[in-house]
Design a protein around this nucleic acid. Structure first.
Lengths: 141, 141
DNA sequence: GTACTTGCAAACAGTTTGCATAGGC
DNA sequence: GCCTATGCAAACTGTTTGCAAGTAC
């Protein structure tokens, strides 16, 4: 997702209606690098839109995925997280605090084909302990 | 998981008991490259052990993960899949048929540290359409 | 005015948990 | 015999669905 404006016109062009609820979800996603889950977004949006429902959040996330304005991450194994940054980049998951961090590397494989299979997308997930949690555990000792 | 024998002695050494149910799950995992889910394993094991319960399958999978005899894959986004091959390799997910395939590549990053975070594990997931589904769709046209 | 969208609640799937019983060691 | 593992069912979590009422266009 480049910016809210482009995203809205993309949705409009595809025939989707621009409801205030959708706008609120999109605004919470723009430039958001915290990789929120559906419930994170629901809680956030609810502050401004107390009557918004889960179904609407999921519906909006689904169509944003369809028009490729966001990507799904399954790094956390329990819930799906969403990333409005659709540029190719990797992710790090801290097994201590559960945070997901962006990782930008140069040697990303630009693979279009592998073993005869056609590749659309590649997700690289790193798992470990983040720098903050490392520091915290060193202090404890 | 190298072989059933080593796996069993590893469990024994860690103080886990070797029940027939666990053995059945382990035998179904050895050399299994189909990346089964918990319910796949449950159904398979049930053929020999009609009285086995889901809880036991999950329990066994949990301890096998603890002793690092299997790895969890979250490539499918809905359920977790298990891989008894713990050697570093990647995976391909076919969005058409849902199959998960092993991908062995040479240029895997051997990353131990990234942006100050300590890396324990790396999972690389490719998404697309597998060679078989590509063939099938070409025939249709 | 017409369709798509919303909100609600119920349904659903995968996984986890509590507890009495069974069984490995 | 002790202590862990099992089986069952119920609980739990994240997500999806059905439907009447609401609203963007």
């Amino acid at each position: 997702m480049e910016n809210v404006k482009d995203c809205l016109s993309k949705l409009k062009a595809k025939g989707f209606k621009l409801t205030p609820q959708r706008l609120a979800v999109i605004e919470h996603l723009e430039g958001n690098s915290s990789h929120p889950s559906a419930s994170d977004l629901f809680e956030e949006v609810k502050k401004k839109y107390p009557m918004i429902s889960f179904a609407t959040v999921y519906n909006t996330l689904r169509i944003l995925g369809e028009v490729q304005e966001i990507k799904q991450l399954t790094i956390g194994s329990d819930k799906v997280n969403f990333d409005p940054n659709t540029e190719q980049h990797d992710h790090f998951f801290c097994r201590e605090c559960g945070k997901i961090m962006d990782v930008f590397r140069k040697d990303n494989p630009e693979v279009k084909e592998i073993n005869g299979h056609c590749v659309h997308e590649c997700q690289i997930y790193f798992y470990g302990i983040c720098s903050e949690c490392l520091k915290a555990s060193q202090k404890e000792e």
